[in-house]
Computed example of a mutant assay.
Amino acid sequence: MQSLQFSAESSSNGMVVRDFTVDGVPGVLWSPASGAERAPLVLMGHGGGNHKQHPAMSGRAQRLVTGCGFHVAVIDAPGHGDRPRTAHDEAEIAELFRARAAGEPEGPIVVRYNDHLAELAVPEYVALLDALQELPEIGTEGPVGYWGINMGTAIGVPFVAAEPRITAAVFGQHWPDMLAGKAKQITIPIEFDLQWDDEHISRDAGLALFDAFASKEKSLHVNSGKHKELPRFEADSAVRFFARHLGGAVTAAA
């Protein structure tokens, strides 16, 4: 069993929120305040520069927990949130800011850095899943999904490609470099988000990553707008997607 330790617990809005560490990596688990003894689990990955408690994470968790009765968990990515930055992290972030200030493309730097983070984070997500499935309220029999956009996709694609316990996933908004080969190994149902006017990721790049997935059931959701303008209603669509594939009815709370 992996070393899962809970450090704090609170309840609000129909959810029990528990902070934890697994092998020293900090995370948070959202669970229904009441309901079935066993329920599906959705693992999430946060975006670059964000953290496990970012409003996007807690908002998605609220939809999945109160709307579907699921458990939801996320951990801080390496160099993010409550985890210290290494000299490598600092150098890559400085290079990103330099390129941004100079009006140079950010993609090559982000792709390279995210690939490095994924190498570290994928084993951590495997350890997280191992540990959570030891909990009696989750167990090993229930279905598991993954939801990650941007850097969450950079980490999630290689994780899902290597992890047969994941049965449905939501990805989006990333370059195909470093990910297309892993995407070709994924055959589970996926939903994929793409911004048509993304100033960083070209339409061709976004479509190439979507096309690479070998899934027989895959849905492309394209919206007008820039990189950070992904409509909030796509979160509701993702909740319905997980309800279909993991089991559960979406209530009005979602």
Results as ranks from 00 to 15, higher is better:
residue 141 E to S: 14
residue 5 Q to Y: 05
residue 117 L to G: 02
residue 85 R to I: 08
residue 8 A to I: 04
residue 108 P to L: 02
residue 220 L to F: 10
residue 41 L to P: 05
residue 15 M to Y: 07
residue 40 P to E: 07
residue 152 G to P: 10
residue 146 Y to T: 11
residue 250 V to K: 02
residue 153 T to G: 06
residue 215 S to P: 01
residue 61 A to W: 06
residue 65 V to I: 12
residue 186 I to K: 06
residue 115 D to C: 10
residue 31 S to E: 11
residue 219 S to N: 05
residue 194 L to Y: 03
residue 236 D to G: 11
residue 94 A to F: 10
residue 229 E to T: 01
residue 132 L to D: 03
residue 70 F to G: 09
residue 176 P to E: 14
residue 237 S to P: 02
residue 147 W to Y: 15
residue 214 A to I: 04
residue 234 E to I: 11
residue 88 H to K: 09
residue 185 Q to G: 13
residue 194 L to M: 15
residue 60 R to Y: 00
residue 42 V to G: 01
residue 227 H to K: 02
residue 67 G to R: 00
residue 76 D to Y: 01
residue 161 A to T: 12
residue 220 L to M: 04
residue 87 A to S: 09
residue 32 P to M: 10
residue 213 F to V: 03
residue 152 G to C: 05
residue 159 F to K: 01
residue 102 A to P: 04
residue 197 D to G: 11
residue 178 M to F: 15
residue 118 A to P: 07
residue 26 P to D: 08
residue 110 V to F: 13
residue 190 I to Q: 00
residue 98 R to I: 10
residue 107 G to F: 01
residue 147 W to H: 15
residue 37 E to F: 12
residue 176 P to T: 11
residue 78 P to G: 02
residue 249 A to N: 07
residue 134 E to S: 13
residue 249 A to H: 11
residue 169 A to L: 02
residue 94 A to Y: 12
residue 235 A to E: 09
residue 39 A to W: 05
residue 7 S to M: 07
residue 185 Q to E: 15
residue 254 A to R: 00
residue 8 A to D: 09
residue 20 F to G: 06
residue 199 E to T: 08
residue 228 K to W: 08
residue 83 R to E: 05
residue 131 A to F: 13
residue 126 V to D: 12
residue 1 M to G: 11
residue 173 Q to I: 15
residue 142 G to L: 14
residue 56 A to Q: 05
residue 54 H to M: 04
residue 61 A to R: 03
residue 32 P to C: 13
residue 245 H to K: 06
residue 208 A to L: 05
residue 5 Q to E: 08
residue 170 V to W: 00
residue 1 M to V: 13
residue 45 G to M: 01
residue 213 F to G: 03
residue 117 L to P: 04
residue 244 R to S: 00
residue 130 D to F: 12
residue 33 A to L: 08
residue 208 A to Y: 03
residue 121 A to Y: 08
residue 147 W to D: 15
residue 150 N to R: 07
residue 168 A to H: 02
residue 150 N to S: 15
residue 224 S to C: 05
residue 231 P to K: 00
residue 98 R to N: 11
residue 211 D to G: 04
residue 66 T to K: 01
residue 132 L to H: 03
residue 187 T to F: 10
residue 56 A to W: 06
residue 202 S to Q: 02
residue 163 E to M: 11
residue 210 F to I: 02
residue 242 F to H: 02
residue 1 M to I: 09
residue 210 F to A: 02
residue 200 H to R: 04
residue 152 G to Q: 00
residue 91 A to W: 13
residue 138 I to Y: 09
residue 20 F to K: 02
residue 196 W to Y: 14
residue 155 I to T: 10
residue 238 A to C: 03
residue 57 M to V: 14
residue 248 G to R: 08
residue 100 R to Q: 13
residue 145 G to Q: 10
residue 250 V to T: 10
residue 209 L to E: 03
residue 221 H to S: 05
residue 203 R to F: 07
residue 19 D to G: 07
residue 96 L to P: 01
residue 186 I to V: 14
residue 7 S to W: 03
residue 72 V to P: 01
residue 139 G to V: 10
